[in-house]
Design a protein around this nucleic acid. Sequence first.
DNA 1: AGGAAAACTGTACGGTGTACAGTACGGCGG
DNA 2: CCGCCGTACTGTACACCGTACAGTTTTCCT
Lengths: 224, 224
Amino acid sequence: MTDEPANGTARGTLTREKVLHAAVGMADAAGGEVPSTRKLAERLGVRAMALYHHFKNKDELLDGMVDLVFAEVELPAKGEPWREGMRRRAGSMRAALGRHPWAVGLMDSRLNAGPATLRHHDAVLGCLRADGFTVAGAAHSISLLDSYVYGFAIQEAALPFDSAGGDDMQALTEGMMAQAADHFPHLFEIAVDHAMKPGYAYADEFAIGLDLILDGMEHRRPDW
Amino acid sequence: MTDEPANGTARGTLTREKVLHAAVGMADAAGGEVPSTRKLAERLGVRAMALYHHFKNKDELLDGMVDLVFAEVELPAKGEPWREGMRRRAGSMRAALGRHPWAVGLMDSRLNAGPATLRHHDAVLGCLRADGFTVAGAAHSISLLDSYVYGFAIQEAALPFDSAGGDDMQALTEGMMAQAADHFPHLFEIAVDHAMKPGYAYADEFAIGLDLILDGMEHRRPDW
DNA sequence: AGGAAAACTGTACGGTGTACAGTACGGCGG
DNA sequence: CCGCCGTACTGTACACCGTACAGTTTTCCT
């Protein structure tokens, strides 16, 4: 706000923000692949190397993209009870990662957290501390919750198509059938009796696991 | 054993197995990067395109590498109580992913599970079913446990150096300090009062979260 | 008006996965 | 024993990638 109109850009077609939004949009459209610098530049009506005036290198651009994803997740509100806060935030985080599956594969390898990411972690921490968790307890909780959310997102991203459930399972189980239904009896059982049932959607597992974790946190809160 | 000496290979310097082991070795050495086809071929004394006689494309090679990682994890023993089995297997899985951090980033995007992977999942499932978990309960448990293990591995892989704890934190917190210690008070608190304390190692969090999850599973087992 | 800084372009380099067309060699039927 | 043929490997080539480096504008400040 202070520097954007003040110094006045020269041939301003590009902005850090515009680049990042275009990159996120293209990645979403491509369904899990981050665009190359050339494709991104073309979309922006610009010549590839122009990007390097706004980002030191591609990694910095990726950092920015990830931060944009973090900016989408709902933070626990001030004074909100920890359990609601954690539940809403975890669900919203998973939703954001579902909307931007390319971000899941980026989460490892990213070193520099952006401002939205820091704000996010600070808010989550703050919600727990405000509700009586010790520093150590909050650390345990966040490690656990984040691991669960990221891990769930990984598994969802690895599903054949999307987690809508239904006939995507066919492909998976076909390969399994081909090899040997009786070599892996329990896998076979769960595939046929559970995962291939009409009402099943892997996405539903998220809330189940999350509730177990939240119950556990509630139970340990006094000790932590 | 049946096909190797039987058909007799022509100029047999290459084997699917030898390629995979070399690839895993190089990836481990490189510390998180899968080798390029050319580098891998060179290491094997061969000319890059030779690999494509044993793997349809690079993705198939990556599938094989991931399966090799799964082959390293300890399965629950037959008749082992579920809790011990799950605990051992989860710890061993995390250890394997720690030894092969490049595999973490591959877990999403992989579609075709190899035989070791299938055997692994079948054994875990079998352990739970044998100890009274329903099909649905076992599905919930595996989704939860795998999410936790993978997610923890992601976070560990994203740490500045390794999770040995200590002065790696400096880099992280420096960036944070630079921006604003008072913009993120809780982050600051946890960094100074907890993560930077001499005895702290993020790796220790693994068992804490895992135990909470196992307690929860024990508690729900009757309903599931 | 002039000069410096900022934003964008042009070109080039070394690396990647892999398609496609050889080439050499071992095992087999005659 | 010979010639064939399939298999394993090589050579070359292509399109694409990230990005270094050196221009070329354009704009703003003195």
